[in-house]
């Protein structure tokens, strides 16, 4: 499924009055099967852009389409992993029940539901923790439950909003590797929001660097023609790291002045 954005702009509307533009003139085409990174300083509207693709918010300007059909709301073709550790899971359901929840909503028959649930839990190495409630899990495990519940739905597009941002560095590293192998296995398009340049380089095939808000825009697009797992000692990795760092620093300093 190809996602295309044409001169997309967004402003929050409250009581008929619109606030200043958060995003403006975003043109972007995401090919089927691509792992795309939205990178930018905090507050630049990259999460907002992801929410537009998810269908949670509606663009104030321009057009968003999936395979030529306009996005009118959330749909089963797009799964979402939220940044917040505490709010997205259902705390009254066990890990297993959380993963099964979407399948039940979707009316998947019981036997298939169990198979898909267990397969998804296996992919994130949580098969042994199925009976636990979310409040007994670590932050990293909670995010893996979110990933598993998305995988169980088999969406063709995976949307991830800084899923590992609030985890410690070691856990983040491990989960990034796990993410790559999951994506390699299940395929599909992935859009991943982050403010961490290394994370972007570890995961993405293409990195979209956004300018600082308000009225944020796409500043540059970087292709990352490297095999997985990415080596941080690779000259190309180092070169891209330096260029993107300089690029993003320019944006951050704009905000500070």
């Amino acid at each position: 499924m190809t996602i295309s954005l044409e001169s997309v702009g967004f402003a929050y509307e409250t009581a008929g009055r619109s606030s200043p533009m958060i995003l403006r003139n975003i043109d972007l085409t995401i090919a089927e099967g691509e792992f795309l990174i939205l990178l930018g300083p905090s507050g630049c509207g990259k999460s907002t852009l992801l929410r537009l693709v998810a269908g949670f918010d509606h663009a104030s300007e321009g057009r968003l389409q999936i395979d030529g059909k306009p996005i009118s709301g959330p749909g089963k073709d797009r799964g979402m992993v939220f940044q917040d550790l505490e709010s997205a899971l259902y705390e009254w359901l066990t890990v297993r029940e959380n993963v099964e929840f979407g399948l039940q909503i979707d009316g998947v028959p019981r036997q298939e539901r169990i198979e898909r649930r267990d397969a998804a839990l296996k992919m994130v190495n949580l098969l042994d923790h199925g009976d636990k409630f979310p409040d007994a899990l670590s932050g990293g495990m909670k995010q893996r439950v979110q990933i598993a519940r998305m995988l169980a739905m088999r969406p063709s597009i995976m949307l991830m909003d800084e899923p590992f941002a609030s985890l410690d560095a070691q856990t983040r590293q491990i989960l990034q590797n796990q993410m790559v192998s999951i994506w390699t296995e299940v395929g599909g398009t992935a859009i991943y929001v982050t403010h961490d340049i290394r994370e972007a380089l570890n995961l993405g095939q293409r990195i979209i660097l956004m300018s600082a808000g308000p009225a944020a825009n796409i500043k540059h697009s970087y292709d990352v023609p490297m095999d997985y797992p990415r080596k941080q000692s690779d000259p190309l990795y180092i070169d891209l790291l330096e260029r993107i760092s300089a690029d993003i620093e320019e944006e951050v300093s704009k905000v500070w002045q």
Binding site: P74, S87, G102
Partner: peptide, 28 residues
Amino acid sequence: HQNKRLAARTFGASMWQIFWRVTIPAAM
């Protein structure tokens, strides 16, 4: 938290399903 309802919507839940399966248990 709105993420609870949004997550249900990505699974294709109807307003009614969200009310029964998210709102009521979360308000318990």
